[in-house]
Design a protein around this nucleic acid. Structure first.
Lengths: 172, 172
DNA sequence: GGTCAATAGTTGACGATTCAACGAATTCGC
DNA sequence: GCGAATTCGTTGAATCGTCAACTATTGACC
């Protein structure tokens, strides 16, 4: 149990943020705790139900969308994790026979990763259940609320990307 | 660099979710990627600027709010991580002289953790900078948008907690 | 064509995190 | 009180993740 259905104040700052313009901090803490709450639950269910992890599920999901396979670097970018991490995840999944590596014919540095038939079957089975979980967890929100939240999160991401661009914090 | 300012489709499912009631999935993926984006940036800055991590910062933040100290279990709950994790974090922070452990007088199983004077000074210094970062990253959102997002995230958490309560997924 | 920088992937060292198993102390039932 | 179940913190093994160093390949520049 990832401990804490009632843990609300993720960075312990929510109380310090009572004054006036702390609204950004409070918002950030709430965003983080909401994401953590759902992520922990999904992760726990993936483990209990399928004996797998969110990282593996995520990797399989990326590959399911690209039957022709993806180079490691593309997986790294899409999953927002480092290349070293991808290497080891693919190592494991390859051992389990869910994915295969094969050399990119056009770039001898590159390795392409592709789902095996078994990997595809297994992923599809899990994906259906996973989607039902998410629908369940988000079920008490109306369609309007979901749309609004979706759009506000897009604005938030734009805000972050913009701030990163200005300070040169990003990679671009 | 946590790779990927442009990585938008965190679980690779966004394309699969084109049909009708996949809005929950799309919302979840967007929530996750927004939180990840900000978390990665904050984490990178904490490392570069203070040589620390989000987990340590979070733990110090919790203790800053509770001058009388907190038992390990309370930290675990508030930070939404396991007790084993807390043990090791406190181990390190204690070595660095930022926190101290002392036995709970009323329960000989329990250990209370408290900030040292040095830990408090160090945390306060970091917290101010951290808050400025967050204000910067959220800066392009209007106050109205922030309030709306804050309130929708509260609804989302209620939805999740309600779903967990019904299926007995929680710890309560 | 040769050098040099950039890119793709791997590896090693390490930190963060989880679960499972454990020892010690507490609490509950009787 | 005594024993069983629970709770608190710790530890070991494993996964996830980062960064830095490395090899091999590619591409750019001259």
């Amino acid at each position: 149990m990832p401990a804490g259905e009632d843990a609300v104040e993720v960075l312990g700052l929510e109380a310090r943020a009572g004054a006036d313009d702390h609204s950004s901090i409070r918002l950030w803490l709430r965003l983080l705790s909401a994401a953590n709450l759902i992520k922990a639950e999904v992760q726990a269910r993936l483990r209990r139900t399928f004996g797998t992890t969110l990282a593996r599920f995520d990797l399989l999901a990326q590959l399911d969308r690209h039957p022709e396979g993806l180079p490691m670097g593309a997986l790294s970018k899409r999953m927002m994790v480092t290349a070293g991490n991808i290497t080891r995840l693919v190592d494991q999944l390859e051992l389990e026979g869910l994915v295969t590596r094969w050399p990119d014919p056009e770039d001898r540095r590159a390795v392409r990763v592709r789902l095996t038939e078994r990997g595809r079957r297994q992923f599809r089975r899990m994906a259906a259940v996973h989607e039902a979980w998410i629908v369940e967890l988000f079920g008490a929100l109306s369609q309007g609320e979901r749309d609004q939240l979706h759009s506000l999160l897009a604005s938030l991401k734009r805000s972050v990307v913009q701030a990163l661009g200005q300070t040169g914090g990003g990679s671009a």
